[in-house]
């Protein structure tokens, strides 16, 4: 036994180290993905018999107006959430100084990211409150009509996205601050001698060096946008009349809530969301793969 171990330990050790993590990850993450795909072909209330119905869930989905509303909102989230990246860069440039107290200022700017989205959601629903929320107090003080942001189908999704942008901008800011720290000072000096400054300098000298930070910022922002659930659940519960739903929220609503337990239909929605996410995941893995090979 001992001799066997001695001889093969190089080959066996990695599997022993890997086993617990791999087991948990397979059971809780990898297998469920396939189970969900399979459940999406069934009609199931979560308790009784599963009934195989082929692609009926997907056919129903194709004619479901609420599904398209959610999909449209997902696209809105994806597009508008991207604003966090330039906004984060802007804040980072503003804060990338060495005056006294700047460290504490930077951490305070990062604050919104540390607190829970539940708290962010509560804070913003209150900020939007039609009668005494700060937004409407402000609008009324300049003589405008108050906007009940969260009760208005036109505004509700934008209102929630704005709330989401607050912590997301903080996240992108911290990525860029770290990136700016690592920018090569010699290149900046050289560019200064060539009379590059301001926007030109930013565009041609700084941004190319910030590429890794930008890449991570895009990855986390896309994922954040597609994961948007907390804020919607807290601020509007999908309303008014389902107009602020996104796929993640609609799936939850269909699978279990007062609308009844429709696990199969919910799973079908989740599969669509997963397919969208998969595009990004493959892109990310492809980049990782290239980096690994050049190393």
């Amino acid at each position: 036994m001992r001799a066997f171990w001695k001889r093969h330990q190089q080959r066996l050790a990695p599997w022993l180290f890997l086993a617990p993590g791999l087991f948990m990850f397979l059971v809780y993450v990898i297998f469920p993905i396939f189970q969900s795909i399979s459940i999406s072909f069934y009609d199931w209330d979560g308790l009784g018999e599963k009934k195989y119905i082929g692609v009926d869930n997907y056919i129903e989905l194709a004619g479901d107006e609420a599904f398209y509303t959610s999909l449209k909102n997902n696209v809105l989230w994806l597009v508008l959430y991207m604003l966090a990246i330039p906004a984060g860069l802007f804040v980072a440039l503003f804060l990338n100084q060495t005056v006294r107290g700047i460290r504490i200022v930077k951490s305070l700017f990062f604050f919104p990211f540390v607190i829970s989205q539940v708290v962010v959601g509560l804070v913003f629903s209150w900020f939007y409150d039609p009668s005494y929320g700060l937004l409407n107090v402000g609008l009324m003080s300049v003589g405008l009509e108050p906007i009940p942001v969260l009760a208005d189908e036109k505004w509700v999704t934008y209102g929630i996205i704005a709330a989401g942008l607050w912590p997301q901008t903080a996240y992108c800011m911290i990525l860029y601050l770290t990136g700016l720290n690592a920018v090569d000072p010699e290149q900046i000096e050289a560019a200064r001698l060539d009379n590059a400054k301001g926007l030109k300098m930013l565009w041609y000298v700084i941004l190319p060096q910030l590429k890794p930070a930008t890449f991570i910022a895009i990855v986390v922002t896309v994922i954040g946008a597609l994961r948007s659930f907390d804020l919607i659940s807290i601020m509007t519960d999908g309303g008014p009349w389902g107009s602020s739903r996104v796929l993640a929220f609609y799936m939850y609503e269909q699978a279990f809530s007062e609308y009844g337990f429709r696990m199969g239909y919910g799973a079908a929605i989740a599969v669509v969301l997963f397919a969208i996410m998969m595009i990004y995941i493959s892109g990310f893995l492809w980049k990782m793969y290239r980096d690994e090979r050049t190393r």
């Binding site: 469920p32 969900s36 459940i39 939850y252 919910g266 799973a267 989740a270 969301l273």
Partner: peptide, 10 residues
């Protein structure tokens, strides 16, 4: 990176 919803039911 997967969306939580695909894991939820299982």
């Amino acid at each position: 990176f997967v969306p939580f919803q695909i894991l939820m039911v299982p």
